[in-house]
Design a protein around this nucleic acid. Sequence first.
DNA 1: CGAAGTTTTGACATCGTTCAAACAACGTGG
DNA 2: CCACGTTGTTTGAACGATGTCAAAACTTCG
Lengths: 231, 231
Amino acid sequence: MLHVNARQAMLPHPVLVKTGLKPVGAEKPFLQFIAPGDELGVSATSPRLYRVVEGCLADCRLLGDGRRQITDIVGPGRAIAQQPERDGSCAIKALTFTEVEVLDPAANPALASETAIDSLSRLARHAALLGRMNAAEKVANGLLDLAAQFPRKLRQGHPVLTLYLTRSDLADWLGLTVETVSRTLNQFKRAGVIDYSHAEIVTLSRPERLKEIAIGRPLAKLNSKPKGEHP
Amino acid sequence: MLHVNARQAMLPHPVLVKTGLKPVGAEKPFLQFIAPGDELGVSATSPRLYRVVEGCLADCRLLGDGRRQITDIVGPGRAIAQQPERDGSCAIKALTFTEVEVLDPAANPALASETAIDSLSRLARHAALLGRMNAAEKVANGLLDLAAQFPRKLRQGHPVLTLYLTRSDLADWLGLTVETVSRTLNQFKRAGVIDYSHAEIVTLSRPERLKEIAIGRPLAKLNSKPKGEHP
DNA sequence: CGAAGTTTTGACATCGTTCAAACAACGTGG
DNA sequence: CCACGTTGTTTGAACGATGTCAAAACTTCG
């Protein structure tokens, strides 16, 4: 049985560029491919604007000692600005083979400002997640975000997503540890809220339930009774 | 003994506008005063840009149930953009009597984009704080940030800051509870790192030590020996 | 003085981390 | 093809930092 690892697969399915943001301006779009683990434009002299065509980028921030915080996950159609950080190094890392359009912010002021607004709004939301949510809410919100950014074909009417993030990436994004992420995902799986056999392809079996968890309704204790869960 | 509460005092000391950002553009600067607790421009039809002249603003985000996350604290000289949020209501609240310049982003594109960059950079930093730091690190970083934004006259050579935030505000900013904030501050105080008699005026007695705590060097257990602390 | 709000403190519970180990998937080289 | 190393995932047990609950102490103000 041939199983293609989604994280490593080169352009797993035909490219369909989603134009969630404004179309590119005058100068010719410069396409670039990045391999998983590679960092983007470390040596860029001028600020750059990247728009993801296919794949997945992570906006990372390192914290002196090894600690890492991923501040955003960027999927196809979304753009991200490379800002030269004053203190506390930061980087944009590819989590899979990724294709990006490299743009000049100066030549695309509208896209640049739209990207800034979008990043700001998402980041503020994420700050609320990091500061005020428990593990289950964090993971639920994370999954819903990723399901919107990395959708696959429905499976039996249920949304499916490609999980380009490892448990470790998820942990660094959601402010948790790998263990807690793994435990929470398996808890969801046991409760029938999500499903997965390969760690990188997740089905949202009960998206409504996931949304409830995301806004704070706790997942009822399910170790008490093995039945009475599914409708 | 006449004690003026710093949080309630109307313009406690002579205004000295710090122009950390670009000077205002063409159209006449429109000044506005806000009382503590008041929200800013809830009914604004168009996006607005506010530059703090004097006082303190908090960028808040509400979370369905009562939970609140303050994503940024804005002091004199800094600007903040009012963005109409899609989901999850947000607001800009004054934490003391505050004077702001009300500006039109369209008329001040440079200031607007500079503000966006600044907010983004601070927020990303704050996300790392929320997601990856323990209580002591959070409080230390918070204090250092506030000391830079709300400096008072040195006291015996030590930096002093006006703490416009209540313990509850600090908790909502740093992703903690009031109790933990209070405990941590008193822990710092007992260790001689900071000092305060009134809850709103804090002296950084040992700023270098505070910086070390801020980057992760833990505050040594000090309940073991009451002496041997200071050099 | 008494009321209301804020801060501090204590006792206790708990969620998430830490530490450790087993397991699974994958690539490599024999 | 299999043994092996590496990396990622899962699981268990124990601990501890932080949250929760409750109440006292303090500040401000009527």
